Simulated assay, not measured.
Amino acid sequence: MSFFSKIIDKMMNEKVSRQKRKRLIIFISIITLLSMVTTTVAWFSVNTFAGVDNLNLNISVSAQLKVGMENYGTDLTRYSKEITNQMIDSYLAKSNTSLAQTVLDPVTTTDGVRFTNRSGALRQANSRSYLEFQCYFIATEEMWVHLTTESTEVGKNDGTRVTSTSPSPQNEVIQCTRVDFTTQTNGTAIYEPNKGTPVNGQTTFDLPSGTMVYSNSTRLFHLDALTPTLVTIRVWIDGEDPQCDDDVQNANLGIQLGFIGCDNNNQPIA
């Protein structure tokens, strides 16, 4: 008999309440099925959770833009063009957790920095709430960093996209997802895929579904030349979103982020 089966049998024998049994069984299922990126979200069901174990970040066209999980000063050789899951895990290890252990409850926020649950209780990052990590962006010249749907190479398909392979209405989970980016100088920009009516006073932006067009609304933060800039990135499921209900339980969610550097006129820097 497996370890988890023993736990469940013990719960049944000890007549643990139905609600607590459901809570633990769902949590175990998420742990054992993380390789399938199983996600369960619902603002109105307090016993459901979301698991995150895959998050890809890629830097697009601009060759002058790089990123790292630490501040390496101006040593560009120590920065890279990609943040991997392993790099994020190294960051999360400081909080004794990892992507595979990350559990998301539906939360909400007005500013993308302070998060609360449905009852208004303050939630902390990387603790059954929302995912948060920090990294440093650096560029060889002044630029604005934007999200982009463009790929780094033809056919590579590594631009920004939030997807679900689940059938309708489960795939509406992508409309509950939010990703934000905070810097000390430029504040917080909130990306809302498939943007709908604003919730909880949030100011968000979406990306075009066709040809990528860069504008002030797609700007995330500004970089000065050869100046490492600390960026805090957060991912959450917003419980105030109308689509965050029981219909999206057991949905699959994939997040991929692509970045590009533009000049003051929002033109990509080659």
Rank of each mutant, 00 (worst) to 15 (best):
Y136G: 04
L223F: 01
Q249S: 11
G261I: 02
Q134N: 09
A100L: 09
T227M: 02
Q101N: 11
I88F: 02
C262M: 02
T211W: 05
T197R: 07
Q101W: 06
T116Y: 08
E240I: 00
A50H: 06
R21T: 15
Q202F: 02
D245N: 15
T165K: 12
W43M: 11
S90R: 15
V145I: 03
N56M: 10
T188G: 01
F181D: 03
L55P: 14
D246A: 12
S45C: 10
M87A: 12
I174G: 06
T116V: 15
E132L: 11
S98I: 12
G187T: 05
D89Q: 05
L104F: 13
H222P: 00
F205W: 08
S60N: 15
Y130I: 13
L220E: 01
S62L: 07
G68R: 02
V199D: 05
D158H: 10
L223G: 02
T152E: 08
S98G: 04
V61G: 14
P268Y: 03
M11E: 05
Q184F: 09
N264G: 14
N85P: 09
F221N: 09
Q101Y: 07
M143E: 00
L65D: 05
V213E: 11
V46A: 08
N85Y: 02
M1K: 06
S164K: 09
E153Q: 14
K22I: 15
N194K: 13
N56L: 15
I190N: 01
Y72E: 12
I8E: 03
S5H: 12
N186Y: 07
A50L: 04
T77A: 14
H222M: 10
E70I: 04
F205Q: 07
Q249V: 15
G196E: 04
S119G: 05
F259W: 03
Q64W: 06
E142S: 11
H222L: 05
Q256R: 14
G51I: 11
F259D: 01
V16S: 04
E153C: 11
E132G: 07
T39D: 08
S60G: 14
D247N: 15
S119E: 13
N200M: 07
C244N: 10
F44W: 08
N250W: 09
S168R: 14
C244A: 10
Q170G: 04
S168C: 05
S127C: 09
S209K: 12
K20P: 04
A225C: 02
